[in-house]
Structure formats: C-alpha cells, structure tokens
Nucleic acid binder design. Structure first.
Length: 394
DNA sequence: TCTGGGGTCCTAGGACCC
DNA sequence: TCTGGGGTCCTAGGACCC
C-alpha cells in the first residue's frame, strides 16, 4: 500500500566486490582477512573485499600502491572462467523475474520489473527476493537501486552498497541527486569533473541550476544536454535487453604491458603477433571478420597513440591482421622510443559468412586461412601450448 | 615498481560523392 | 565579386565504464 517503490519499475543490481566475493566464497580461511584480486607486477587491482577497502584499497589502483596500503592482504589471481560462470547463473536468476534484463557487465544489470509486479509484488519486494536468491544460490551478496529511471536506479544502487537496497521515489529525486558531487554521475569521469569544477560546478545541484546553454558552452552540446538531464533525473534512456556474455561485439582487441619498457622492434613485432593470434582466434570462434585494424602504442611516459588502417575486405586471418599491424607500427618511424604497451584491435566486425572473398588469381591467403584452421584444431585437441608461430618459440 | 585489459561512444576534420 | 549542402567513410584522439 504505502510502498514508495510502486512508481519505481527499474532495478539496478550490482554484486558487492564481485571478483573478490567469488574468489573467497569457498575459502572460509579468507572470509575475515583483507583480500585483493589482481594487481601483480605492473597491474592494477581488479577487486578488493571490504576489509581491504578499509585500508584505502580500491579497484583500479596500482597493485604496488595497494600492497603498500595493506601489506597483510592476501592477493589472489583472477579466475575469469569462474566469474563468467557465476555471472551467467546470476543473469538467469534475473530472467526468472523478467525478460527485460540489460547486463551492463559481468556483475551488474538493469531490470525493468513493471510487468512482474502483479505476479511477484512491489519492486522493493522483488529486489529483496532477488537478493535472497542470489545469496542462497551463489553465496555472494548484492545491492539494489530502485527508481523510475535507469540513471537514478544506478546511483541508488551505489548508495545501497554493500548488501542493501535503496529506493528513490519520483518525489525524492532532486533531494537525492542535488547534494551529490558531480563526479558521482554516470558518465562524468575525472576530466569532465575537473572541467566542471573550473566553472564552479561542484555538485549535481550546481549543474542542474546552470542554464543549459552555459553548460553546453563549457562541455559541448551533446554532453551538456546529457548532464542537464542527468542532474534533473529526467534522462529517459530506455533499458535495452541484452547479455554481455553472448551479444555480438563490435570490435575485438588485445593489448599487453611489457614487463619492462622496450625499444626493440623484434620484441614489439613478436608481441603484435602474439596479440593478433589471440584476437583472430576469438574472431574465428565467434564467426566474425573485420576490416579495420588499429594498433595502440603507449610510451614510457604514458602518452598513447593509435594508428588504424581499413583494408578492402574483412578478414579473420592472423597473417593479414599481423601484416597490417606491423605496417602501421613501421610507419610510425620510431627510433629509440621506449614503449610500455602495444595493442591490436579489429573493428567493424561482421558475420564471417557475409564476407565475400574475392578469388584473386595467384591469391595465397587461402593457404593462411587453412593454416589458422589447422592451428585452431590442434589447440582444441591438445591444448593451447602445442602450436605457435616459429617466431614465438623460445 | 605509480598507472591493466576489455570494451563503447563521441567528436572533428578531410576525402569523396551526388 | 562569398563559401553550397549534405551524407558517408576513414582516421585519430579522447573520455568513460567495469
């Protein structure tokens, strides 16, 4: 009756410290100690449990800094297969409530429950039921934001953490949003926050009460309009049902930070080959091909550039992508630049069976395709380490 | 031994075409 | 005595998210 969540059909559900929770759920000896997932070598923290967060550890933080803040933390390696398995199970649980589920990432989703209330109760009741189900089935906790729109539900969910529910009914939207710091808004990162700060806009309320045209002069037309809507909670973005795990991707890429910076062309082209192999193998598994090859080069001082080239016909052939990547790299004409990271990405992905391969007289690419297929098959049968290009043998 | 790796979307200029 | 207007593709960079 008096349940304020009746006018709030959108749920944002977010697992609490997902990677860390999954990593420890069957290890009682880790339940009462700080735990950090990832962050070895030059890496950053992927997730930290709440005990580690008490020491200031946050995800995205360099592992070196995290270990300094909390030397007694137990550091565990991520097990992505396990994360994907748990994620799929959680999303299935959501779909028992409604088909309108938009997965944002492995550990986060929006649900539109307006069609489920007759059957299952108010949005708040549904939220509590889902939290209980996830805990019983997966042994991890989650938090839920309940509101009338996607963007407000997202912020409510953040406020609910950890292991809670927050409902923001329509009449409470501005009093909920306006005291917040602008950086809390979804889509406002460090740069935009600093920019807004320079205009004296610190809170969401400041942004809300700035004339639209002034805001647009500060941050650009598109972003200005978007921020204004977010600040009033009038953002009408519809939820688009989709799964992160099974949806077709628009690009696929891989990159890697070297253990030590390097200026050695051989090391770099070999790394490009390794990364290309990873990417094209995933492409072949997914049955897609792409036309635009982009390389990323990050220098020792962290400046990062990209170079791309669109080839006439979509490909999933390791040799073709690698050849394009190396040409892009060589065209940079670098001499002694110290390089920290390189990456390869293929964009403009389309289903492979829509690609019409021209039969060019004397074409050799089919030989390379056959070679890729043979390698894929051998890896499938005997494991990842059995076949690799001669230049990657050590 | 500061700063990963996987993505998406937006902007902006130039080329090219009708 | 101006300079056309779009639409699309390509490239590069940047911001952001988890």
């Amino acid at each position: 009756m008096g349940d304020p969540s009746r006018a709030c059909p959108i749920l944002h559900i977010d697992m609490d410290a997902f990677y860390a929770s999954v990593a420890v759920r069957e290890k009682p000896e880790l339940w009462h100690v700080p735990v950090i997932v990832g962050g070895g070598g030059r890496g950053v923290v992927l997730s930290a449990n709440y005990l580690a967060r008490e020491y200031g550890v946050r995800s995205g933080m360099p592992g070196t800094r995290a270990r300094r803040l909390c030397p007694q933390a137990v550091v565990v390696s991520p097990d992505y297969d396990e994360f994907v398995t748990v994620s799929k199970a959680v999303m299935e649980t959501f779909r028992r409530v409604t088909p309108l589920v938009e997965a944002v990432s492995l550990d986060e989703a929006f649900l539109d429950v307006r069609g489920s209330t007759k059957r299952l109760g108010t949005p708040l009741e549904i939220a509590e039921r889902l939290r209980a189900l996830i805990y019983d089935e997966q042994g991890i906790t989650c938090s839920v934001g309940v509101a009338a729109t996607v963007s407000v539900a997202k912020l409510a969910g953040k406020r609910a953490k950890p292991d809670g529910v927050v409902v923001v009914p329509p009449e409470a939207i501005t009093s909920f949003l306006h005291p917040m710091e602008v950086g809390e808004l979804w889509g406002v990162g460090e740069k935009t926050r600093d920019l807004l700060q320079r205009f004296g806009l610190r809170t969401v309320g400041d942004v809300a009460h700035t004339p639209l045209t002034t805001l647009q002069r500060a941050v650009g037309d598109g972003l200005g309009r978007h921020l204004h809507e977010l600040a009033w909670g009038t953002d009408r973005r519809e939820l688009t049902p989709r799964s992160t795990v099974d949806d077709p991707e628009k690009s696929m890429g891989a990159n890697e930070t070297f253990g030590r910076d390097t200026d050695d062309r051989d090391v770099i082209t070999r790394e490009l080959l390794k990364l290309t192999g990873r990417v094209t193998r995933r492409m072949r598994t997914a049955g897609v091909a792409g036309r635009t090859v982009t390389i990323t080069v990050r220098f020792a001082d962290f400046t990062t550039i990209t170079r791309s080239r669109t080839i006439p016909e979509a490909t999933d052939v390791t040799h073709e992508v690698h050849r394009t990547a190396v040409r892009l790299y060589d065209a940079l004409g670098l001499q002694r630049a110290r390089i920290r990271l390189v990456g390869v990405r293929v964009e403009g992905l389309v289903p492979r069976d829509t690609v019409h391969r021209q039969l060019v007289l004397g074409e050799r690419e089919h030989g390379w395709r056959d070679a890729d297929r043979a390698v894929d098959l051998a890896r499938f049968r005997f494991g990842d380490d059995v076949v690799r290009p001669a230049s990657l043998l050590t």
